[in-house]
């Protein structure tokens, strides 16, 4: 089975890129929390729920949008056969700390529900109505090998796998999302895709 990387997005402090093209640029000297709201406005998402999310979920919604937009309008996608494979280092630590601060006064239920890393998977699934496989791996740093192997396994029974690394801290936005699928039979399209290999995934992340 030949598999290919269909498309990818990269989130950094400076903005969001989709396949090397800048989607939205962040203005300098802004707090990172505000940067995510700024990128959201630039991308004209019109998804007001965005504002109630924590930073991890906001970043996930932004990174996933350019990759999954076409699955919303194209009825040929079976939403049960799209898998979401996420990873990061901190799990939900930022929101864990925020919730912990509210605990001595009034523990906030709206913060508590975000104290799980996989909530971002749920938010992406809700936005794009994806009901397929989900998993959240915790790794000390971006692990192309792990994502590669697991996506290969999932593609035996699924059509599309969205792989994600989403490391959000108080001073760094580091997101890398990409979609993997079986190589299309259409030979014209073939050349436009990158072969799905761990080394290619790693190269794209390092760009």
């Amino acid at each position: 089975m030949n598999t290919v990387i269909h498309s990818y997005t990269r989130l950094k402090n400076e903005g969001l890129w989709h396949n090397k093209n800048l989607c939205a640029a962040a203005s300098e000297n802004k707090e990172l929390v505000k940067t995510l709201d700024e990128l959201y406005k630039e991308m004209v998402l019109e998804y007001p729920k965005f504002y109630k999310m924590d930073s991890l979920c906001k970043a996930g919604i932004l990174c996933a949008e350019p990759l999954l937009k076409n699955t919303d309008t194209n009825p040929s996608f079976d939403k049960q056969k799209i898998a979401l494979v996420f990873s990061n280092k901190n799990a939900s630590l930022q929101t864990d700390c925020a919730y912990e601060h509210t605990r001595n006064t009034f523990p906030s239920p709206s913060l508590f529900v975000y104290t799980l890393p996989n909530i971002v998977i749920g938010e992406v699934a809700i936005k794009h109505k994806i009901t397929g496989e989900n998993i959240f791996f915790i790794e000390p740093s971006f692990n192309a090998q792990l994502l590669y192997h697991y996506a290969e396994i999932l593609l035996q029974e699924n059509d599309l796998v969205l792989c994600a690394w989403l490391h959000i801290t108080d001073n760094a936005l580091d997101g890398f999302f990409y979609t993997v699928m079986k190589e299309p039979i259409d030979t014209e399209k073939k050349s436009t895709f990158i072969q799905h290999k761990a080394e290619n995934i790693h190269k794209l992340y390092m760009q």
Binding site: G122, E123, I126, I130, T131, E133, N134, I135
Partner: peptide
């Protein structure tokens, strides 16, 4: 063995048990 998502709500189970 399989996993799935309800694509419905982040803290409440789906009323239809879809996932």
């Amino acid at each position: 063995a399989y996993s799935s998502n309800d694509a419905n709500h982040i803290s409440g189970p789906s009323r239809t048990g879809e996932g």
